[in-house]
Each structure stands twice: as C-alpha cells, then as structure tokens.
Amino acid sequence: MGILEVKGVNKRFGGLQALGDVNLSVKENSVHAIIGPNGAGKSTLLNCLVGKLIPDSGSVMFDGKSVLGRKPHEINQMGISRVFQTPEIFGDLSVLENVMIPCFARRDGAFRLHAYETVRKEADIREQAEAMLEDVDMLDKRHMTASSLSRGDKRRLEMAMCLVQAPKLLLLDEPTAGMARADTNNTIDLLKEIKAKRDITMCIIEHDMHVVFSLAERITVLAQGTPLVEETPENIKGHPKVREAYLGEAQV
C-alpha cells in the first residue's frame, strides 16, 4: 500500500475525457514523478488530489482516508501540501509572515478567532518560521515584502511555506516551468536537499525530463488521460510506449 492510492479515477469535461481510469500508487518516502505531453491530464489529476476538482468516479485514498469530497483546506490539514506552477505566496506580507501563517494553520487548525492575541508574543511560531527560513537560506530576507522577491526566491519561499507544515506528501506542479537552466538546477538541488533532510513523500508533475531523471525514483507516464507505464527512470528512458507518446507514432 502506498501513502497515496488512486484507483479508477475518471474525469470528463463535456465531451473530453480528461482522465480515463487512472491508477496510481505512490510509496511512502519516495519521489514519484508524473510526466506526459501537453494535455495528458497531469494537472487535472493533481487538481483531483487536492480537492479543486472532484472526479466523476474512482477513489483517491491518502494515508488510509478518502480525500474525495473534501475541501482544499481540509486536504491540506490531512498532510498534503502543494507547490504551484507559478509560486502562490502572500505578496503583500513579509517573508517571515508568509512562513508564520502555515505554522499558525498547523497549530490552530482551519479557523481560530485569535483576535486578542499578539503576533509578537508568538515566540514559538516565530522561531519555527525563522528556522525554516534559515533552512532555505532566506533568513536575511525575512523582513522583505514577499512580492519584491526574485522569482527563484519566491519559489524557495513557497517551498518553505509548504515544508514548515511538515507535510506527509508534497505535490509539486511543474516546479521549474519557465525557469532558466541555472535556476532549474538550483531547484533540483533544493529538492534533493529537502529530501535528504527529512522523511517526505514527493509527487512531481513535470515537463522537463532533466528534472524528472535527476529526482524521481518512480515515473508514471500519462498520455491522453491514461497511465501508459509506471517504471524506474532507467527503464523509462528507452521505453517504446513513452517515445510513442512523446514523439508520435510516425517517428517510431
């Protein structure tokens, strides 16, 4: 049993079968990549995992519990954090506040009316957030407004916001999309570092083969809404079905 078990998931948008009978099993503490050409249904699948979309049929079990029908904030509280394609951070707030908010969410749950307490006096939360920022080398930027960070730093900040919650599963939606080579390599190093330091399961949706082969232990190839193969990186490289999906039949 994997920590994340997807069984027979279907999702239609009108006449388009976005996901057709998707099965996926992600082992605990592994790095699992989902790759596939444009329109293969990678993002749809991810949105079904985090509660943004509800599949038409099938089951999604996380840590032994079903996530279907739960709202995004409930799924996050179960231990799934998500990194977006373009970093989603609190742009108007300081870097430190950005990391403190997930700490509050972990400690106090989805809602608490802590209107008469003072942020300054939350030394524990502050220390926790600062330690996390230290971890991603951003402590010196903690008083900057988040929107003024460079793109790379925004990505680092978003990772810090997810990791400070100590999620069991980290979902990454094309974490290097639109990045220059150097930035991509930095992100790969960052992710390797994160993985080395803690017990965490990662599920990466990615376009860039370089990223996938540097990180993943298992790879699922998705084409036209259906998983073609699930293999180790070595076995994926020369796999005829994968070549077919990416390059088209004519060139095989």
């Binding site: 709202k71 904030h73 969410a105 749950g109 989805a110 608490r112 209107a115 919650q165």
Partner: peptide, 28 residues
C-alpha cells in the same frame, strides 16, 4: 489595534493577498 496586531489580523491580510494560498495552507 489589537485586531490589527493579532494572528487573526494577519490572517485577514492574507485573505486580501491570496485566498488560493490560504486554502492550500489549510485555512478556511
């Protein structure tokens, strides 16, 4: 003033800044 300086006030500013991130951070 107390509300502005409270964790609750910080959450309200976060709502203004990015509701999507709020939801995916486990906050309703």
């Amino acid at each position: 003033v107390r509300i502005f300086r409270s964790p609750f006030g910080m959450m309200l500013r976060a709502v203004k800044s990015n509701q999507q991130r709020m939801n995916y951070t486990g906050l309703n």
